[in-house]
Nucleic acid binder design. Structure first.
Lengths: 186, 186
DNA sequence: ATGAAAGTGTACAGATCAGTTCATCTTGGA
DNA sequence: TCCAAGATGAACTGATCTGTACACTTTCAT
């Protein structure tokens, strides 16, 4: 019960929503693509919105785990902060990169009180907390301020990688980040 | 014949698409809210996608005109570059601010070859060209590089204002921009 | 082996979707 | 005054949407 089918549905729904969008993906298509009957889907999740929320929880877990693992591999805190942008470059280079799932979710559910919007915002807040902690470890004078600035660059790089014509938004962001980090740690 | 009805439709459709999203807004609702009959709508635009493209053209015009006018009011080129972030702060403070229409459009039409996606990307490219010109006027050593960096901050601030919990993303972005501009003009 | 839990396929409801058809009405210029 | 172009309302097509109903099968622990 607890293992397979439900998790498999969420995992495969994640990929389809990410590729096609939320409104553009119907439950029938989802059932066809995942091979899981619609009856079962609605037994696990009482509505499409609930399924989307589960997808976003999974994506939040996966993404933060992946990102901060990549950063930890870089060694000391200062190097970790910079490594975020190398991880981004790696992500952008994937052929199936299609921007950030939470930016997309917030775009499709623009009402700020909608649960999907709220949960997307929560993801960004958790990213901020983790980044702030690393900035503090690195000895930044203003860890919160540094984390906010680095996240601005991160979000900007994601949007630009998805929508722009620039060659290397992650590299551009990293160059700015280097200056900020140097200044913040004097 | 060329004036009113058609332009009025595009203008009012813009507001509704911006507030509710593209997929979430049906042509019937659009007809009801604008008071323009569906027959007339489909006489002017052969499909919903064509209407959306017209909406995006209008938004591109309006936004760039508004932004660069605000920047010009700041005086010399260096001040103009910084004024972009004051304009953003002004925009974010509006109660009906709901992120950037082109980020949203690209989110809802993620296929990079889709005309709506292509046109959204074109908007970002034109912003870049105009910003690069001002950076050159200001005497930047690498106008293109400075423009790219400032746009990263702009896009990041927009996403964060829409999705984050931060108090003043435009101010944060401006603080980083000041350092970049100082360094670029030495 | 039995019985409950989980999953299945199919058909359906009721709403909404983009887009069309058609007969009628309004408008403005010659 | 007349005529053509533009606009209208309402009904309609056929597809698709979320969500449900129901009878059936599979799985698996006891």
């Amino acid at each position: 019960m607890r293992p397979s089918k439900r998790d498999e549905l969420v995992r495969r729904a994640l990929n389809i929503f990410y590729r096609e969008g939320f409104h553009a993906t119907g439950m029938d298509l989802l059932s066809g693509e995942t091979g899981i009957s619609k009856t079962t889907m609605f037994k696990h999740f009482h509505s499409k919105d609930e399924l989307i929320l589960a997808v976003l929880r999974l994506r939040d877990q996966d993404f933060r785990t992946w990102l901060f693992r990549r950063m930890e591999e870089a060694g000391e805190p200062r190097a970790q902060l910079l490594a975020m942008f190398d991880a981004l470059a790696e992500w952008f280079a994937k052929p199936d990169f299609r921007s950030c799932m939470f930016i997309k979710a917030a775009s499709e559910y623009p009402d700020p009180d909608h649960p999907i919007h709220v949960q997307s915002a929560e993801h960004k807040r958790m990213l901020f907390r983790q980044l702030q902690a690393i900035a503090a470890e690195a000895g930044a004078k203003d860890p919160a301020g540094l984390a906010r600035a680095l996240l601005l660059l991160k979000e900007g790089a994601i949007v630009t990688a998805h929508l722009g014509h620039e060659a290397d938004p992650a590299g551009d962001a990293k160059a700015v980040a280097e200056k900020l980090i140097s200044a913040a740690l004097d």
